[in-house]
Design a protein around this nucleic acid. Structure first.
Length: 956
RNA sequence: GCCGAGGUGGCGGAACUGGCAUACGCGCAGGACUUAGAAUCCUGUCCCGCAAGGGUUGUGGGUUCGACUCCCACCCUCGGCACCA
């Protein structure tokens, strides 16, 4: 008796059953093949789960279910990243207390999460705002303090005027607050930092070995931003009231080879400010400039486009290479937080220095000549003549190799967009009369040359592609070449876009007028005007020059320390106490931080008090600063009246270690269980958003590395593999509140059921790609699952399948398995559809084994319907714990294959051949085809290409 | 500007290592069933052409018996970084 497919009923039934039987709870200590299948836990907001998150979560679950069926003990936990600005801002908006709101949103989230059909290990759920959790977040902070990795310092920091708190560098996106999009400003505040820079080099080095999405690895590398260079000391003179040479300044440069061209020196306003504090009596205009620069907002005027400003400091520095006295300037184009906060300026070879020099009329000396080799070393150079074509977009020169007598043949133009090789070939053919001009070599790298254009009287530097040709065939046209001149051509192609980089002095004006102001040559070359280093290649000169002036090699990083304090309410209070008495006596837990003590571990957690007034104050302190019962404390050392730290820590600290806690949530005495951690971590598979490339993913790596160094875990990297999922659009447009096109998962899951929605979301596109959500598209999946239901409902399967059906089933199992492993669920589902089509075409040929096999393949995507039908076919136990079907390779091969027969590359016919047919037989069969005979006539084919099992191509 | 990803039918997307471009699905058109519609089923559906045939993977070129795939140049879209010396 046919029953209609009723997803609601079977979902309810199996959800209950799975929970009761703890189908998805691993045994942490006894598991044989642990597989930690992790997704980024959400920060709950009142809007509920985003459809994009649902897609990711169910996508991760598909993978987890597959792994479970492969015999792994899969652990798939879920929790809430509920502390933090995001949740708090929402609470502010609706005028509710974040703690109250958290209860409501948690309930809503867990309800939604339980309806998407995931095999979550619910017993291990966690919430970051739970004191049982943040006790350990605080404990981590205490350890960081005790071991010198947490420190407090006053400096210019990012401040979000809307969120009224400071932010880490990583949380400023293009000058705006990561949370609310408000333009971030600079503020001078004393704050807590984590010394992540100490790990910069290791964080960088480990990246290569990580099995992560490539773009995330690159983003992290760029963010850490290692530059290798040299620190050079410049001694200072003519500082009013100071002896010459009494002071010096150290600059960082990656181009010590340009030292001879350093015509002035620039220090950052912050450094100038520091100097003024230690006694530099700066001129009034310098003071004014520094004060203004320090106040300036970042992010407001587009940093790179802004005209350079600056002021002469009024004293000079000695260039250690030339001995020249060069002026020292103060300018905000030099950043305080990078290098030493001071630079040597080489206006001839650095774009920014050039702009600054132009602005203030400073000297420009060119010391790098972008010429490879000197004319003497390279006899070709003399014989080269360049045709300079004014209207063309490029210059083509063709020259004889010197061994051929060095006669100029041709010159011509190459338009941008044209291939140099093809153009050169054509030109050569025209000029020489040779018809077969073969490209035999293309230089792998672009070479720099200096050219001289006689017609214009200018010299210019060019990036050149070198091509070599050989003339093979006999000439057909008028003979322009002597027979003995046959040989190789060297063709150098110069695209205009790369052509001009810099012009040497006598022709400076002309070239700048022609090619535009402000182009600077910053590439490698040969040193000029550099004393005894003149003529040395710049790469080599880097270290030679550095050594000659006593420079030290150093590596510098773009990465800054992690600013951890937040002047907000909804987070774990930073567990520190400040004692005024101890500070005055210069005592403290750490010598470098008088007055500061960590809260004793037995007193953790420092509970976040439930207060009425939790709004951010906006004056640089947390709302907790006005809660006396909270901040009043006793000094752990001297028991005097002391004050608690009232800032809370960054949300990203909460999430930087949660994966360590999940398997150990029941631990009360330590943050994680060591044996369980050893067994289950690092995380086997982690999938989440690419937006966390330099946020969560970097912080988690950092902390894990720290824990490793402390002997708390035995691995350095927390996530063995990480894949970034794509973003989902609705009807081709980005989903946003303002557009009102946000998909509410609840409605869809209610209407279609979890199986349909999961399968649909998986079918959109590969998980790592985006995907476009369209309501009409769901119908396809609805139809598919209904057809599945109908096919199985009441069906009697025979004992054995027909051979072709068995083959199709094996093939599908093979493809689905490989596709799931590659997170290409869309093609896996398409394979299932193909198999179902096959089944429906010949239902009587489908045996019970194959019928069950299909359900197993479907199970990761549509776990409920698969389980229900499996149960009715009296499969043993849960389908989700059954073994993934083995693929018999014998079934993957076909006895005969239809292969295409091409004539001159066009498909003209097909022929059925066994894949192991030999070339002779294949040829015979192909040439016997009427179509081939007709086209071939009496001729023999010029060429016969046969790729067994794939294609035949006959060239006639 | 720099770094990264991508560009294939009306739409989402397939195509193993260079081997029949457009699998699978949506949509659309026609038909069957039905009093009727939804549903369901069948057929067709890259473009031009009645057909034979020709053309087609952002554009232009190259390599190859053969190119969505490799090479060169360019255009466009999306994402990240952005005075990091």
């Amino acid at each position: 008796m046919p029953r209609p497919y009723d997803p609601k009923a079977i979902e309810a039934k199996w959800t209950k059953r799975w929970l009761k039987e703890k189908t998805y709870e691993p045994n942490f200590l006894r598991a044989k093949r642990p597989f930690y299948n992790l997704m980024m836990f959400p920060y709950p907001s009142a809007e509920g789960l985003h459809i994009g998150s649902v897609r990711t979560f169910s996508g991760v679950d598909i993978y987890g279910r597959f792994k479970r069926m492969q015999g792994h003990d899969v652990f798939e936990p879920m929790g809430l990243d509920g502390f933090g600005i995001h949740s708090e801002n929402y609470a502010l908006k609706v005028g509710k207390h974040p703690a109250d709101l958290a209860k409501v949103t948690a309930k809503n989230f867990y309800r939604q999460l339980s309806e998407i059909g995931n095999g979550f290990a619910w017993d291990e759920r966690l919430e970051t705002y739970d004191p049982k959790y943040y006790r350990w977040t605080q404990w981590i902070f205490v350890q960081m303090f005790k071991r010198g990795l947490a420190y407090r310092r006053k400096q210019a920091v990012n401040w979000c005027p809307s969120c009224k708190t400071v932010l880490a560098d990583e949380q400023v996106i293009s000058g705006e607050c990561e949370r609310c999009g408000t333009a971030v400003v600079k503020k001078d505040l004393e704050q807590w930092f984590f010394r992540i820079t100490e790990y910069a080099d290791r964080l960088l080095k480990n990246i290569d070995a990580l099995n992560w999405s490539e773009k995330i690895k690159i983003a992290q590398k760029n963010w850490i931003g290692k530059s290798e260079g040299v620190e050079i000391k410049f001694s200072l003179e003519k500082i009013p009231g100071q002896k010459d040479g009494a002071h010096s300044v150290t600059v960082f440069t990656t181009r010590p080879d340009t030292l001879f061209g350093a015509t002035f020196l620039v220090i950052s306003p912050e450094l100038a400010d520091q100097w003024m504090h230690v006694g530099w009596r700066a001129p009034e205009k310098v003071r004014r400039y520094v004060a203004a620069a320090l106040k300036r907002r970042i992010g407001e005027p587009a940093a790179g486009d802004r005209a350079k400003t600056g002021v002469d400091a009024g004293f000079v520095a000695v260039n250690p290479a030339t001995g020249a006295r060069i002026p020292v300037w103060v300018s905000d184009y030099v950043l305080a937080g990078y290098g030493t906060g001071a630079i040597m300026a080489v206006p001839a070879h650095d774009q920014r220095d050039y702009e600054f020099a132009k602005q203030f009329g400073l000297e420009i000396v060119s010391v790098i000549d972008p010429v490879t080799g000197t004319p003497q070393e390279n006899p070709r150079e003399k014989k080269k003549i360049v045709a300079f074509v004014e209207d063309g977009d490029a210059v083509l020169t063709v020259q004889w190799g010197p061994e051929l007598g060095g006669r100029l043949l041709i010159g011509g133009t190459v338009e941008d967009g044209e291939d140099p090789a093809a153009t050169a070939r054509r030109e050569i053919a025209e000029e020489t009369g040779y018809t077969d001009v073969e490209l035999i070599e293309r230089a792998p790298e672009t070479v720099h040359h200096r050219y001289f254009a006689p017609s214009k009287g200018i010299a210019f530097h060019a990036a050149v592609t070198v091509l070599r040709f050989r003339l093979n065939n006999k000439k057909r046209n008028a003979q322009k070449l002597e027979e003995n001149e046959r040989g190789k051509f060297v063709v150098e192609w110069v695209p205009k876009s790369q052509a001009l980089r810099e012009v040497t002095d006598p022709l400076h004006r002309y070239a700048l007028a022609k090619y535009g102001e402000g182009m600077v040559y910053d590439g490698p070359g040969v040193l000029a005007r550099s004393g005894k280093f003149t003529g040395m290649p710049s790469e080599e000169a880097k270290w030679a020059v550095a050594e000659a002036v006593g420079g030290t090699r150093v590596a510098r990083y773009r990465l800054r320390d992690w600013l951890l304090s937040r002047q907000r309410y909804w987070g774990p209070p930073i567990p520190m106490i400040y004692c005024d008495a101890c500070a005055r006596a210069n005592k403290g837990e750490r010598a470098d931080m008088p007055g500061w003590y960590a809260v004793p571990e037995r007193e953790l957690p420092v509970k976040l008090p439930q207060v009425k007034e939790f709004r951010p104050t906006g004056i640089g302190v947390s709302p907790l600063a006005s809660v006396r019962s909270f901040y009043e404390a006793r000094c752990p050392a001297c028991n005097a009246k002391a004050r608690r730290e009232t800032d809370v820590s960054d949300t990203f600290l909460d999430s930087a270690w949660y994966f360590l806690r999940y398997p150990s949530v029941r631990e009360a005495k330590r943050p994680w269980h060591s044996a369980i951690t050893k067994k289950w971590l690092p995380v086997a598979s982690y999938i989440g958003g690419a937006e966390h490339a330099v946020l969560h993913l970097l912080y988690a790596r950092f902390l894990t590395m720290v824990f490793h160094d402390w002997g708390m875990v035995d691995f350095e990297e927390p996530f063995a593999t990480f894949r970034a999922h794509g973003l989902i659009t609705k009807d081709g447009a980005k989903m946003s509140k303002s557009k009102g096109n946000i998909v509410n998962p609840d409605e869809y899951f209610r209407q279609y059921g979890a199986d349909t929605m999961r399968t649909y979301l998986a079918f959109l596109a590969p998980l790592e790609q985006g995907g476009d959500f369209r309501d009409e598209g769901i119908r396809g999946i609805t139809r598919f699952l209904e057809r599945v239901w109908k096919f199985y409902d009441g069906a009697q399967f025979s004992a054995r399948s027909d051979n072709a059906v068995a083959r199709a089933a094996h093939r599908a199992a093979d493809k689905v398995g490989r596709d799931i492993e590659a997170l290409q669920y869309n093609t896996a589902i398409s394979a299932l559809m193909v198999l179902l089509n096959e089944f429906e075409r010949r239902p009587d040929a489908v045996g019970r084994r194959e019928a069950m096999r299909f359900l197993q393949l479907l199970a990761p995507f549509a776990p409920f319907i698969a389980e229900e039908l499996w149960d009715r076919l009296s499969g043993k136990g849960s389908i989700h714990c059954s073994r993934w079907p083995e693929v018999d390779p014998r079934f993957l091969k076909d006895e005969t294959v239809q292969i295409a027969v091409q004539i001159n590359g066009k498909v003209r016919d097909h022929i059925a051949l066994a894949p192991d047919t030999g070339a002779v037989d294949a040829r015979k069969a192909a040439l016997a085809l009427p179509k081939v005979r007709e086209m071939l006539g009496a001729n023999e084919p010029k060429k016969f290409v046969y790729v067994p099992g794939r294609i035949i191509n006959i060239v006639i």
